[in-house]
Amino acid sequence: MVGLDVEWRPSFGHGVDNPPAILQLYVGRCCLIFQILHADYLPDWLADLLKDERFTFMGVGIDEDADNLDRH
């Protein structure tokens, strides 16, 4: 099981859809914080991890987070 959370820059305008800013992954006592907003690309290993069906991702509002990540 992997805990997952995504943070976005605040949207102050109506209809603004900001891209994700921070991806947080938690496994046991370990945490990875990846600043997507400042990255030139998403590393292959991270994309592979997020697509790997052997892992169960958990979090509050995770369906919305996953949909927004996929969209961006």
Rank of each mutant, 00 (worst) to 15 (best):
D48N: 08
A21T: 00
Y26W: 02
L50D: 05
L4D: 09
D5T: 06
P43A: 02
I22E: 12
R54M: 02
D17F: 00
L25D: 03
I36W: 05
R29Q: 14
R9A: 14
E64S: 14
V27T: 10
M58K: 09
S11L: 02
A39Q: 07
H72F: 13
D40W: 00
G13H: 01
V16C: 12
G61W: 00
S11N: 12
L25P: 03
V27E: 15
A47M: 04
C30W: 01
A66S: 13
V60W: 03
P19S: 00
D52N: 15
L37P: 04
D17N: 09
C30L: 09
A39C: 10
I36P: 05
I62Y: 07
G59M: 02
E64N: 11
Q24E: 13
S11W: 01
F55I: 04
W8Q: 04
L37Q: 12
F57K: 05
R29H: 15
R54D: 07
Y41D: 08
D70S: 12
D52H: 05
Y26M: 10
D48Y: 05
E64A: 11
L32K: 00
D70K: 11
C30R: 06
R9W: 05
M58A: 15
R29P: 14
E53N: 14
R54W: 03
A47H: 01
L32F: 04
L32D: 03
V2F: 08
P20D: 03
G59N: 04
L23Y: 01
G28F: 03
L25I: 04
L25G: 01
D65H: 09
W8N: 07
M1G: 15
V16A: 14
Y26L: 13
F34C: 08
R9L: 15
F57Y: 07
D17Y: 03
L4V: 14
W45F: 05
W8H: 08
W8E: 06
N68Q: 11
G3V: 01
C30D: 14
T56C: 14
W45H: 07
C30E: 13
D5N: 08
R71M: 13
P43T: 01
L50Y: 02
A39D: 01
K51M: 06
D17A: 07
L25T: 02
I36M: 11
G3F: 02
V2N: 06
W8K: 03
G28P: 08
L4W: 00
V6P: 13
F55N: 10
N68P: 08
V27G: 08
A66E: 13
A39E: 06
V16G: 14
M1L: 15
I33L: 15
D44A: 10
C31W: 01
K51L: 10
